[in-house]
């Protein structure tokens, strides 16, 4: 797999921690690339725990939410445990308005997520 452009990966034990390279996830091409790069994470069988750290994300559109939903479906089908963390209040409100707080497991920070993975 080529080096991702939209996300950065680090490992914490057997957990893959994903951070976002863009503070505003609105550009259509970037959103498409983000969707592809997230999907690639669960195409193999080498990951079963993933944390998405949103600390860098200041804005995201509904199109970006669509990619996150696709990723959640792919992760679930592969039995990959997925947790979202470090979501700033404005972005959390976007998840709350669209009821995605019911779809995703969300924790305050990486430490909280790692503690239950």
């Amino acid at each position: 797999m080529s080096t991702p452009q939209r996300i950065t990966l680090t490992n914490s034990g057997d957990v893959t921690v994903v951070t976002f390279n863009d503070s505003k996830i609105i550009d259509d091409q970037s959103i498409q690339e983000l969707g592809q790069e997230l999907a690639a994470l669960v195409e193999g069988d080498d990951r079963d725990k993933i944390v998405l750290n949103f600390a860098a994300v200041e804005f995201l559109s509904s199109a970006a939410l669509g990619k996150l939903i696709s990723f959640e479906k792919k992760s679930r089908s592969k039995k990959v445990k997925l947790i979202l963390t470090n979501i700033r209040p404005e972005i959390y409100e976007v998840f709350a308005i669209t009821k995605l707080t019911k779809l995703f497991t969300i924790k305050d920070d990486e430490a909280d997520a790692l503690a239950i993975l």
Binding site: G66, L100, L103
Partner: peptide
């Protein structure tokens, strides 16, 4: 909740 579409209008 997990369906595609409709979120832009909700926002």
């Amino acid at each position: 909740v997990g369906a595609f579409g409709g979120r832009g209008m909700a926002l």
